[in-house]
Design a protein around this nucleic acid. Sequence first.
RNA 1: GGAGAGGUGGCAGAGUGGCCGAAUGCACCGGUCUUGAAAACCGGCGUACCGCAAGGUACCGGGGGUUCGAAUCCCCCCCUCUCCGCCA
Length: 425
Amino acid sequence: MLDLQYICDHVEEVKRNCRNRGVDVDVDALVALRGERNGLITQIDELRHQQKQISAQIPKASGDARPALIEQGRALRERIQELQQRLEEIEARIREIHRRIPNMTHPDAPVGSDESASVEIRRWGTIPQFDFQPRDHVELAARHDLIDFEAGARVAGHGFYYLKNEAVLLELALVQYAIEKLRDENFVLHITPDLARDEILEGIGFHPRDDATQIYSIENSTLSLVATAEITLGGALKDQILDVEQLPLRWAGLSHCFRTEAGAHGRATRGIYRVHQFTKVEMFGFTAPTLEASDAFHHEILRIEEELFQGLGIPYRVIDTATGDLGAPAYRKFDLEAWMPGRGEGGAFGEVTSASNCTDYQARRLNIRCRTPGRKGTQFVHTLNGTAIAVSRALIAILENFQQADGSIVVPDVLRKWTGFDRIG
RNA sequence: GGAGAGGUGGCAGAGUGGCCGAAUGCACCGGUCUUGAAAACCGGCGUACCGCAAGGUACCGGGGGUUCGAAUCCCCCCCUCUCCGCCA
């Protein structure tokens, strides 16, 4: 959520930003409604002021002066209630527009309506050249009995799967690898709940009970399954006031992630690229409320993501996400796309991580503030999030990049201390 | 699942219809004292909204209600804690 005052002070910028992000929202209506709202508030405050004065007179008033005062008070109450009702209607309309306005955008973020406008910043690694026809991860998994899609479908439906045998150890190794790296980077480690209250999801920017939601909700409750530990990590400090000197907070969280993938059917449904459940290690940052602070943290998250994939030896490219593809909360977003030899015709890059700077957009909704010594009041902190390892997609990259002519798969060196084996097959 | 207790400012914790936006303590900020620090003492210190300002209004878990007037009374909901049961 943007500050309403900011929106009204920067109408043209906000409108342009909405256009760039492909969000159709009537900013002028918002400004007009706010004017109406302010007028009403002024009126109501004045009436309440009168009412208070009358009420204060009553205990001191003589017996025969009282009935008239009481009657005046009653009349004022009724008038206030009327105006109050109108005010609430207007505020509801304001909220409806307000919540649809996305975050502002980093000046360097590429402007464009979709993915195709995103900019590749750099590449790392060498795309493997195979002197045989490379298999995709589904074939490789079948060959080594690593993933049971049929059992997943029988038990939980399409999009669920069982990891088996070496894949189990690979998942655990990837988690350990990411966790160890983040501990070395001085992140506070967490294993978070896999469910969260809907208000937390909304604060982060998800819409749990919407029609086209990405979120599984628990019936007869206000809980939903989390789509990422971003939700539980960010939500953990809801309504808290932090000391700016203890910022930035560097947090990491391990959780399962559940996604309905509504509307994604028929799109890359093969294998474990797009699934309803996976395991992920996530980074989250709370920084001081300045673009310098959050920008610096953003680049640090990106650096860590790159180092994780460099450590695995998986080629990737870094994408600066176009405005139309940022989603509402992000001010800027970098994605890592790993090379996946089995993807598309002859291999393709596939998204494996993302790193977002959400500035104060989430903090305003979650009411996470900080206090600065010598400064009056509080400010909303900046929040950031980034993927350390999303296991399912990292697994694809490992299986496909490190497959050998004989069908075996070489395990990245950095994982071997946890897998206990250096090759599958 | 059963029984009970409770939700008040950054924290702790008073407050059962008007004198309460709210005592007190801690924390924090400024000052006196001190070589410096601590202690002690003095003063200040919630958030948000409306207003050019003076100032005003709202906020005691959330929502409704009673009343001229509600932190305080009534109703509904949410949450937290304790004990018991069940359970990895």
